[in-house]
Design a binder for these strands. Structure first.
Lengths: 253, 253
DNA sequence: TTGACATAGATTGTTAACAATCGTGAACTG
DNA sequence: CAGTTCACGATTGTTAACAATCTATGTCAA
């Protein structure tokens, strides 16, 4: 949890490896031992979502190659894709670093979410019979289980992915991609600026939002979601450790 | 304009080359003769926005290499980025093809725009003094000029980019990226399903939307935009040429 | 001791040759 | 003649060696 005291070269190899201990056994059409770049992207994405990969962590090509047992080409393709999603920062001749959102970017993320998510849940609640409700109810079940067993990383990831699944429930590919990107950024932001207990707030807020959607109450659903987003944002201390973009702070930590 | 009778290998080399006849002479920090992959991405993006590159057009690596005078690596990186933006479809061992949205995807695009853009313009009109209004007024000027001189490709591109600039005016990086992607897809969709005159509708609608924003009328701005989007969507004939995802139709054309 | 400078190591960027795959067309067979 | 098979050319995917860049260490002089 103490990202802030980031070492110059943290040992994140195990973190990524264990992330796959329980691979999602669906959508896995290719069982070949050689994972393609999508698998690499997915694993790093998951590690970021679970706040196991700290911002500014260097992802060197050589390390990734031996971690995933892949050639350099696959790694470079994966890094390019991750950078296009804003998950990592690709610096020319200097390597790839986990993205480190600054204050302005954090504001943009929340502003974008405030713009998109309220109309989204309103729309979901307006016609709950036409959306993929099972996706959401199943998710709440997973969240409850993780919370009951106190699995920290699972809780953090699922807490964020609830919002991605709201978009998924709409069945709209573009909304889903956008939300996924915003939620990923939010995870990085919460890891950077969040208080130690605010990393996985929203105990029953997700449940209440889903309930409002299920029972077809657009106004209530929208209101609950706005409160929820405000709650997350208010739990941040934006002046906490405003790190500069270069890696000076990482060395001085 | 007759995309529909697509040849197996159209000669699009000149189309891309001429696209750069008037390179945007800003944000061009590197004057080296070797364009990096971003330039390639930008040129192909522009060609798609101007509906000069038809859906399903094959973009072979070798051709792109000689077109841009670049090594294969740059081209492949550019293609990967374009595919991550959904502009092209990257098929394993078969090459890169300009994306060809189907009916379902078109519906998703308009649904997403209906969800995002109305709240966006409403927000812009709520506080017109805090946004980048010059960006929009300048754009309208460009649009009028292009229309006055009857420059077809310019009109088409600017007509789409107005919406991107609405997002840009908000100053939000994420909204901008999302809108850019949606607008690009819309351009492909209009080219595929649009009637011959509906490709550049919205003669003064953009002007009126901007006016409502400038004068601080959120309700009117939102209403005008919704009408505008409906107008675009209604100008399409979704059963026009519902092409299959594989390239059979291209051969049989 | 401190600073600049130079060199060595490590890391990333690039290139070219090689391997694998796909599409096409000719030849063959029923 | 229709359909299948096979082989060739073209295109994409991969690898490994090479080049360029950056980082860090160590030396030397002030």
């Amino acid at each position: 949890m103490q990202w802030h005291t980031s070492q110059p070269e943290p040992t994140w190899k195990d973190q990524i490896v264990t992330a796959n201990s329980r691979a999602n056994n669906q959508d896995q059409r290719d069982i070949s031992s050689e994972p393609d770049e999508n698998v690499i992207v997915e694993r790093i994405y998951k590690a970021v979502m679970e706040q196991r990969l700290a911002p500014k962590t260097k992802l060197s090509e050589a390390r990734l190659c031996e971690t995933f047992g892949v050639g350099r080409m696959r790694v470079r393709r994966a890094l390019l894709l991750l950078s296009s999603q804003g998950i990592i920062d690709l610096q020319s001749n200097r390597g790839a670093y986990v993205a480190c959102p600054d204050k302005a970017e954090a504001n943009d993320v929340f502003a974008a979410r405030m713009l998109i998510e309220p109309p989204l849940v309103r729309q979901l609640a307006q016609d709950p019979s036409r959306i993929n409700l099972a996706l959401l109810t199943d998710h709440i079940t997973l969240e409850d289980e993780a919370r009951a067993q106190n699995e920290r990383t699972e809780i953090i990831r699922l807490s964020g992915e609830f919002h991605t699944k709201l978009a998924q429930a709409s069945g709209n590919k573009f909304i889903t991609r956008m939300m996924r990107e915003l939620v990923t950024r939010t995870s990085l932001i919460v890891g950077l600026f969040g208080s130690s207990e605010s990393t996985s707030c929203a105990e029953d807020e997700h449940t209440n939002i889903l309930l409002a959607i299920q029972t077809g109450k657009p106004d209530q659903a929208e209101h609950l979601l706005i409160s929820h987003l405000n709650h997350i944002q208010n739990g941040l201390d934006m002046d906490a450790l405003q790190q500069p973009q270069d890696d000076l702070a990482a060395i001085l930590g």
